[in-house]
């Protein structure tokens, strides 16, 4: 999958900019800092874990380690992503509040490129209008004349929050279970 990624260098001050991975999701472009990214793999055989919220797509075997895959689109409260030939899983090292590291896969439509974005080019997030929870957004970056949403990976992939959603999702499901 390395071929998908192309690195472009833009002439900006070194100490202020950081590298971001941009990717597409539902026709919109997003970016995440590349520091937490471990690798990008093709979407492949995935095992569905039952009784989990929709955004937990399932688990995959990453060279012997079992890694959960989060459907980013569903995490934003939209429909589950449709799987295409170009669907990718970005493996990110997330950490819990206790500081334990855990790898999590992020399912996206396509990955685009690694880009350097100067801190000056990132504007604070709008309080509404992005149709995504505002605490998920780190800022809005202008890349090639278009806005790119820079995500706060720690918030989006907060294991503590996601597991509490899963917990909350289990209890009421039992009450209304029609079977």
């Amino acid at each position: 999958m390395g071929a998908v990624m192309t690195t472009r260098h833009t002439a900006v001050a070194v100490d202020e900019d950081a590298q971001y991975l941009t990717f597409m999701l539902g026709g919109e472009m997003f970016a995440i800092g590349i520091l937490g990214i471990k690798e990008i793999i093709e979407y492949g055989s995935l095992t569905v874990v039952p009784m989990m919220p929709a955004f937990v797509r399932g688990v995959i075997n990453l060279r012997g380690a079992v890694v959960p895959v989060v459907d980013l689109s569903a995490r934003f409260g939209r429909a589950n992503s449709a799987i295409t030939r170009r669907s990718c899983v970005i493996i990110i090292e997330a950490s819990t509040e206790e500081g334990q590291a855990q790898d999590i896969g992020l399912l996206v439509d396509t990955v685009s490129a690694v880009q350097e974005i100067a801190a000056a080019q990132i504007e604070p997030p709008p309080s509404f209008g992005a149709r995504i929870r505002s605490d998920f957004i780190n800022g809005m970056a202008k890349v090639d004349g278009k806005f790119v949403i820079v995500l706060d990976v720690d918030k989006v992939l907060s294991i503590d929050e996601m597991s509490s959603i899963a917990e909350a999702g289990q209890a009421p499901a039992l009450d209304i279970d029609p079977r």
Partner: peptide, 16 residues
């Protein structure tokens, strides 16, 4: 293989 904290609330499945 433990499933990790994300699946901590999952009951009925102990691991993978």
């Amino acid at each position: 293989k433990p499933l990790g904290k994300l699946f901590g609330a999952l009951r009925g499945i102990s691991g993978s």
